[in-house]
């Protein structure tokens, strides 16, 4: 029987794996069509049609661009997979936020919402579980996403606060009322495992996660 932590972790990992594989398949489909288009041109040239080297180079450049895009997706998938290497370790909070923002982009695109994770003024690290922290941030984004208006932005930021770290997800655009948002039990379970807290401030239009700088 899988306990609630295992269930939450699997749901997160499963959702992101589905999203990532979908993205990779999309890139592969474009590469497949571009390579096939090159084949079309080669067959046409073999039958005597004039070839346009510039056009060929452009298609080859597009293939390289798609390979580069796919490489970024796979690197992020690899970073996600390695986040389970250690139960806890000292990790850059900025890197965790960057990664989960990148991994949540497809979900945001489907909702026509933007996700921004600008560079922090003062980067900080925490001795925590990177996997559980990413999992918690993802659940928060997933919870607020349906209430964010089309083309509005969820801005992720973090800062040191006393002995801990605050991670903010600020909605930039039409305000969301506190009553609308109901955080699922997954968020409180994950916050508990991280010795942290999670909440939403209507005044600041922010979902805030606080975690200690170091888990015991």
């Amino acid at each position: 029987m899988i306990d609630s932590t295992g269930r939450i972790g699997l749901a997160f990992f499963g959702a992101l794996s589905a999203s990532i594989s979908h993205e990779i398949k999309n890139r592969m489909a474009i590469i497949h069509e571009q390579a096939s288009l090159l084949e079309d041109y080669i067959h046409m040239a073999a039958k005597g049609s004039e070839t346009d080297p510039e056009r060929m180079l452009k298609i080859a450049g597009s293939i390289k661009k798609q390979v580069g895009n796919a490489d970024v997706i796979i690197k992020n998938m690899n970073r996600l997979a390695h986040s389970t290497d250690d139960l806890k370790r000292t990790a850059s909070v900025e890197e965790i936020i960057d990664l989960i923002a990148a991994l949540s982009k497809r979900m945001a695109d489907l909702h026509e919402v933007k996700i921004a994770a600008p560079q922090a003024k003062e980067p900080c690290s925490a001795h925590t579980s990177p996997f559980l922290l990413m999992n918690l941030i993802w659940w928060c984004i997933k919870t607020i996403m349906p209430f964010v208006q089309k083309n509005d932005t969820i801005r992720l930021s973090h800062e040191k606060s006393g002995d801990g770290v605050l991670i903010r997800m600020t909605v930039e655009g039409k305000p969301i009322s506190e009553e609308e948002i109901e955080f699922p039990e997954e968020t409180s379970i994950l916050a508990g495992l991280l010795n942290g807290e999670v909440g939403y401030s209507r005044e600041k239009q922010q979902c805030v996660i606080s975690i200690p700088a170091a888990l015991p």
């Binding site: 999309n26 474009i30 288009l37 597009s62 798609q66």
Partner: peptide
């Protein structure tokens, strides 16, 4: 929604 896919 993939414009590169549409174009090729």
């Amino acid at each position: 929604d993939e414009t590169d896919f549409l174009s090729v």
